[in-house]
């Protein structure tokens, strides 16, 4: 197995992360040993279906896991500091300033009783970024302009319900980036939007990433979204990383059966008109009783006996790795 190595220390390094939700029916092991890193000025995509642990991973990084969720082991290092050891106050100071987040549903993620402007200025205020009210207002309007809200100065005093979904998501991005964070976590930022608006939002994010130099973690279940925006992709399933590779490499040479399954689910551009999409049969594993072996074994067409018994290790070379026993040199071809 080969580790992914980078010359400089990564901006964010997640190591052996385990997250469980201690519900009344038992421990749900949502994340089981996730490792990945994000370099400075890099956009990384995390892909997976519902319940694969994408969102939980991002909330664990920010230490915003909802009750009864808890990080049971592992480490999250940001700029050389262990986030899991930080005090609540230090963590709060970091959120929105150094690491910020954009959520899935712009219709419910903005507070309905405050104006868009107030909510952006609040981000500046809690991090003591601007001296006066006028300066803060000017900065907020500048951000609204930057995310492409027309006539930003007059929309400053508008309430969220006076904005469309796409406009609200733009405002969310403005709010997340107003303190110029070095890492932006975007959790399904386009899922709740129309396809045409999706493309616009992705364009805005790409544009701002280049302008601000922020690293981005883009969480999505949509391979098409990551293919356009990310330089590297992490595929998650059942609370574990299945495969990780640079975007081009992943699409040209997917190693994991799950990744290949995902790709058969998206219509190919210029493909035959009557080409059928192939769904992956079955459902994701029950994480209340996590499987001993590969989490994908139940749905995998290439499963072997070892896949049931023990968890696969990572195979691959360079920056491409995948956790599958099929990649073992001793596996039958």
């Amino acid at each position: 197995m080969s580790a992914v190595t980078e010359a400089a220390a990564p901006l964010l390094d997640v190591k052996g992360l385990n997250v469980s939700f201690f519900t009344h029916v038992g421990e749900v092991r949502a994340i089981r040993g996730v490792d990945f890193h994000v370099n400075a000025r890099e956009t990384v995509g995390i892909v997976g279906e519902s319940g694969s642990g994408k969102s939980v991973t991002s909330l664990a990084i920010l230490r915003l896991l909802p009750y009864p969720g808890r990080v049971t082991s592992g480490g999250v290092t940001f700029r050389g500091e262990d986030l899991l050891q930080k005090s609540a106050g230090a963590m709060r100071a970091l959120r929105g300033d150094e690491i910020s987040m954009v959520f899935q549903d712009p219709m419910t993620s903005l507070n309905p009783v405050f104006t868009i402007g107030e909510q952006i200025v609040e981000a500046l205020a809690v991090h003591k970024k601007k001296k006066g009210a006028r300066e803060a207002r000017a900065k907020a309007i500048e951000m609204l302009n930057l995310v492409g809200i027309p006539d930003a100065a007059s929309r400053f005093g508008a309430y969220p319900h006076e904005f469309s979904g796409g406009m609200r998501q733009r405002a969310m991005i403005a709010m997340a980036l107003v303190c110029e964070p070095s890492l932006l976590i975007a959790d399904e930022p386009t899922t709740a939007l129309d396809v045409t608006i999706q493309a616009q939002i992705l364009e805005v994010m790409k544009d701002l990433r280049e302008k601000t130099g922020a690293s981005v973690i883009l969480i999505t279940h949509d391979l098409a979204v990551v293919s356009e925006t990310c330089s590297r992709i992490i595929v998650m399933y059942g609370g574990q990383v299945m495969e990780e590779a640079p975007t081009r490499e992943l699409f040209e040479n997917p190693l994991h059966p799950y990744t290949r399954g995902l790709m058969r689910c998206i219509p190919a551009q210029g493909g035959a008109a009557r080409e059928r999409l192939v769904p992956i049969p079955g459902t994701p594993p029950d994480l209340l009783k996590p499987p001993a072996g590969c989490p994908f074994v139940e749905r995998c067409g290439e499963a072997m006996r070892i896949c049931l018994a023990s968890r696969p290790v990572f195979y691959g070379e360079g920056r491409h790795r995948a956790a599958c026993w099929r990649l073992d040199p001793e596996a039958p071809r």
Binding site: A93, S100, M101, D105, S109, L110, N111, V126, A176
Partner: peptide, 16 residues
């Protein structure tokens, strides 16, 4: 509600 998570994610103190 989701906007509470948004507020926390932007570093708003719990009291606020």
């Amino acid at each position: 509600q989701d906007y509470i998570m948004t507020a926390r994610a932007k570093g708003v103190p719990e009291f606020q």
